[in-house]
Design a protein around this nucleic acid. Structure first.
Lengths: 153, 153
DNA sequence: ATGATCCCTCCCACAGTGGGAAGGTCAATA
DNA sequence: TATTGACCTTCCCACTGTGGGAGGGATCAT
């Protein structure tokens, strides 16, 4: 099948399929004489796997490992579990940081009467002393991980 | 004071101060004869405001509004509150999505014995039918917002 | 005067995703 | 058969927000 069909069947956008191929996450598929990419059911299966893993917040780098493990019938489940647990910890830490932020904001908002007068504890909280506003400084939390390396060599 | 000092005093990195200037979030400061940027205490105050807002997950675009409101002594607190509440909702939705992900993963991990046998419900969950693995499809949640426009004209 | 420590600008990288231009292909329909 | 419309191709660019680093100038203390 063509890329559009594979996209619909897997839930990965056409753009992303090509991107994953370019960065080497998936193997280049066969081509027709005129250069169209041709995907098998098996390829779609892999794409679907990728889609699920993305939805669970795994990075492309982690998916590389996960895919290798998926294909390796002799791998130990302990290995996969370790990666999953690591990911769970990351996810939970991000959720925690997010919650701390919204709690702080909510606290500020609760003390703001929200009418047409200019006094506003939210704005004052931003401008005033740090302790009032920062739950825990410097937790920027990019959604995808930190310092990873160049992958296209 | 020079940019390095302003950076230390505000908690915004030197790189970011220049970036915020380039995109027009902050006004270009005065320069010495040799081209060094010179910041006043007031500038540092603004920078600190920005630093706090960033820590609470506001995007640059939101900060533009927030800064304008901060400087506008006649603004209505309702306006600020509305922005804050919006941000709270976004933050909470992200936290919720993150939690759903980690719950799903944890569920999968709990059923994985984690030894050297290859059976692994985590991997199987990725490869198998969608219902088992996706808490709620297609919630990718970039940390900063979606479709915003070019700002350097 | 020399070296250390600033600062300047400019370019590049990254994740991950989409937009779109310029062009080739394929199937169906008029 | 010729045209149309839906696909496909590659290539480049955008974005957010942040850091790295090169190559060169400025300031300051010893």
């Amino acid at each position: 099948m063509n890329i559009g069909e594979a996209s619909k069947a897997s839930g990965v956008s056409v753009k992303m399929i090509r991107y994953y191929e370019a960065i080497g996450l998936i193997a280049p598929p066969l081509r027709t004489g005129s250069g169209y990419r041709v995907y098998s059911d098996n390829d779609v299966h892999t794409l679907r796997f990728i889609s699920r893993a993305r939805d669970l917040g795994f990075s492309v780098e982690q998916m590389e490992t996960l895919l290798a493990l998926w294909r390796d019938r002799s791998r130990a489940s302990a290995h996969v579990k370790a990666i999953a647990l690591e990911q769970i910890a990351v996810l939970e830490e991000k959720a925690r940081a997010l919650k701390a932020m919204s709690d702080t904001l909510r606290h500020l908002a609760e003390h703001c009467h929200g009418d047409d007068r200019p006094d506003c504890p939210i704005i004052d909280g931003f401008a005033g002393p740090a302790e009032l506003v920062t739950p825990k400084r410097r937790s920027r939390f990019g959604v995808t991980g930190t310092d990873r390396k160049v992958r296209r060599p």
